[in-house]
């Protein structure tokens, strides 16, 4: 089993601290969701992990070996990102051939099946692809290279709903046929909420959350009822946000509930990752800024 470790990584651009002492461990065979708002440092982190840029301090290791300038370790990762690092004049077939040469092998059968499914003509030149097909082609590459860690930075950018649906299904198919680590960076949390096994929330360059989704959700509690009763019940608990609907209040609690007595008027349930994310990344009480 391989392990990808990010330890104490910090990075700043000018006076802006993009990453601050980030430490995460990625195990093999899991699907991680790397969540964060725009500018939270997700892409920078992924770029540092794949040695595209350098951290100011800290290091990235695979199986306790530093990945910096290390072909053997860098070859275990593939980062599909928004920036295009292929030359516009190359045909897709040519890029696949070159990619295969660099990684040592390539799942041509899968690539062919996916190209047919997404109706992508492999004789096209890379520069002629639309935004959606640009993403699709890079996703095909990501699924077909023989790596242990597949890093996807905003993978469904520009894909229509139908293609997104197809992509998530193919991702799971590829994952079950060949279990390896996926790290999916996205702000479309709802789409990946059930897909990921572990969630990492990055906010302003810091890790806010790094846990299995199941454990995280078990700690989410929405407490609904008359305002007075709800506030009394949640007193002393970690209330991260609330909603008011007339006299009815919902307090969102993140953490363990102690064995305090639940009043008859108050109801408990869990809430989802999307809500948790919004509350965790907008620190002040009750302020709700939905993006997108």
């Amino acid at each position: 089993m391989s392990m990808l470790e990010v330890s104490h990584v910090s990075k700043s651009f000018g006076s802006k601290n993009v990453l601050q002492d980030v430490t995460i461990t990625f195990d093999e065979g899991k699907i991680y969701g790397l969540l964060g708002r725009n500018g939270a440092g997700k892409s920078t982190l992924l770029n540092i992990m794949t040695n595209r840029t350098f951290a100011d301090s800290g290091e990235v290791k695979i199986d306790s070996e530093n990945i910096n300038d290390n072909d053997a370790k860098l070859g275990l990762m593939f980062l599909m990102s928004e920036v295009n690092l292929y030359s516009n004049g190359s045909t897709l077939d040519q890029i696949i051939a070159d990619t295969e040469m660099m990684y040592g092998s390539f799942d041509h059968q899968l690539a062919k099946r996916l190209a047919t499914k997404f109706e992508l003509d492999m004789a096209t030149k890379f520069g002629k692809l639309s935004t959606g097909y640009n993403s699709i082609f890079k996703l095909i590459l990501a699924l077909c290279v023989p790596v242990k860690f597949v890093l996807l930075d905003e993978p469904v950018l520009g894909l229509d709903a139908n293609h997104r649906e197809m992509f998530y299904s193919e991702l799971i198919d590829s994952f079950t046929n060949n279990p390896r680590t996926f790290i999916i960076s996205t702000h479309l949390i709802e789409e990946v909420a059930n897909l990921i096994s572990d969630v990492i929330v990055l906010d302003e360059g810091r890790i806010m959350l790094d846990q299995p989704v199941e454990e995280v959700l078990a700690k989410t509690h929405s407490v609904v009822g008359p305002q007075r009763d709800v506030d009394a019940y949640t007193k002393g608990l970690n209330v991260i946000g609330h909603d008011d609907m007339g006299n009815i209040r919902v307090n969102y609690v993140y953490g363990e509930l102690d064995d305090r007595r639940l009043p008859d008027t108050v109801q408990l349930s869990n809430f989802d990752l999307q809500k948790l994310f919004i509350f965790l990344t907008n620190q002040f009480e009750g302020s709700r800024h939905y993006e997108n």
Binding site: T50, N51, R52, D69, N70, D71, L74, G75, L76, M77, F78, L79, L85, Y86, S87, D98, T99, M102, Y103, V147
Partner: peptide
């Protein structure tokens, strides 16, 4: 241009 392609494909700077 070549650096871009190579770093995308996990090739080190020394190589």
């Amino acid at each position: 241009e070549n650096f871009k392609f190579l770093i995308q494909n996990g090739i080190s700077r020394t190589t």
